[in-house]
Design a protein around this nucleic acid. Sequence first.
DNA 1: CTGTTAGCGCTTTCAC
DNA 2: GTGAAAGCGCTAACAG
Lengths: 329, 329
Amino acid sequence: MTINDVGTAAGVSTSTVSRVLNGTARVDPELVRRVQEAVAELGYRPNAAAQGLARGEAGAIGVLVPDLSNPYFPDVLKSVSAVARSHGRRVMVMESDEDPASEHELAEELMRCCDGVLLCSPRMDRSALVDLAGRGHPAVLVNRIVPGLSLPSVSADFYGGMTLVCGHLAQLGHRRVAYLSGPEASWANTERIRAFDAAAAFGVEVSVIPCGHTARQGYQAAGSARDRDVTAVVAYNDLVALGAVAALEESGLRIPDDMSVIGCDDISLDDLPHSRRLTTVSLARHELGRQAAQKLETLMAGGADAEPQYIPMRLRVRHTSAPPVPLPR
Amino acid sequence: MTINDVGTAAGVSTSTVSRVLNGTARVDPELVRRVQEAVAELGYRPNAAAQGLARGEAGAIGVLVPDLSNPYFPDVLKSVSAVARSHGRRVMVMESDEDPASEHELAEELMRCCDGVLLCSPRMDRSALVDLAGRGHPAVLVNRIVPGLSLPSVSADFYGGMTLVCGHLAQLGHRRVAYLSGPEASWANTERIRAFDAAAAFGVEVSVIPCGHTARQGYQAAGSARDRDVTAVVAYNDLVALGAVAALEESGLRIPDDMSVIGCDDISLDDLPHSRRLTTVSLARHELGRQAAQKLETLMAGGADAEPQYIPMRLRVRHTSAPPVPLPR
DNA sequence: CTGTTAGCGCTTTCAC
DNA sequence: GTGAAAGCGCTAACAG
């Protein structure tokens, strides 16, 4: 079932078929009709590989994410898809499972079969990224800024977001805070930590506790946060925060009266009961996805790669932050 | 940068390059070395479209899901990916946003560019499915069984699972139960409802309340469940159940003392605090994914499509179900 | 406006 | 064991 069969059936040349199928040029209405009829009759569908080869482009973009089960990504993916589809491109999603090595490999694979690639929160090290950038294949970094890299990037302003969190805690009167730290390879995590230096200037002391990115890890790490004699816990993300809230409540603390807990990312779980509607910092994830996809399209169209672009984060004060209990003396 | 350039650089023919790259035939070790060197030197990567065209297969399978933000799918996708990769295939994920029309369209698109397709919880109607099946393109249905359809299928045994739930409630002494119903087009939902007929035989009366598939919808629908004067609420899935728990608790009920709430799917949120570790029915999602992918591989290899295959569900009694409060008289 | 023709980059007979 | 050559199905000049 090829374009040729359609041509034969309609009594026209393959080029004519191609023309009516792609709207590449004017075609006699009568022939158009015959072609469409033949297409319908035969149930013809163009072969994607052949089109890709002939056109010199795959008609797809690739998106690589570290972890699909993070509620963060579906939102991003939706707007990425919307942009891509509006440009007639498919979206190919791959997941690296937070593994830098397979991440590099999958990125290469995506580059082989996609016109452009979106690398979300890549965990690979700088040199691996430099390697990929050297391929000269359109790609944009999402949620990671690497100085001196030739890849365009769009990222949430994690530093700014965490600064808002610290300011909020400082104003509430907190002085000792624990940070449940995310994956080591996470740039977003590093950025958050970077903000704590600024916080120190405001008299807020943050101790960093290794944790992870899942609710379970937050649940497990909450204990050592509590041991640090802090009045507030800031989590790498909302999932971790939720896990921490659960653990802390189980250990008899009331949130936020006895302990404030602040998340990050604002994954939409505001169907949760009052007591666990997290104070967090939010980001227009669809905006992040939209801009990233847009930037990628620009890049594929040969546009210049602009400055790293930051999407601002907003503080969402909800129900898990409050002034600290007076310290026992 | 083509295979030709590599050949020239290595002083061999393109066929030789192809052979060493694919291990298709014995090649003189010396030539192998030269080719590999040239490949490395030039940073050559085969063009996926050209390979696909020449080989007559895309080297990828497609997976269509209704909603990526449902924590159900990432688990399935992981094992699907594992199987696919072990067969040297990429995985292309698409999301239909629960829309039957775009679902049909996306499925067609996936068929154009993938060797096989996994249709997860498809919402499209029977005739649309028949249409797709008629394409003769390898595809398997996941979580949907359609009698008389030529498509193989692998599905959770929702009927059996819900029967377990009803039995559990009956044994606890519940007599009036509300079911927060999922998407109308969902076969899984229909199967669950079908189980209620059996439940009636055990004296459990279930009233079905339109709801949806998200936590928010569960939160919103919980009120009308409460109004039905029931002692237990069964939810379409765990997300809905969680939303319902939140709403019910906010309205002053204690779970499970005043009201039992049972979910479905067992999405791993057991990092939640005690009070909301849901009683639910679970399924080895990785098994579902594995078997579906396996079946698809078999199908692509020309294997016969076997019987619809059911994956059993298990009741997980946790902390949101208990005997009913004595009915006021 | 339409048909003829030459590739796109790779695999794979087929001879050597 | 290796190279030459013929496509895979489609698009895009190029003539007419």
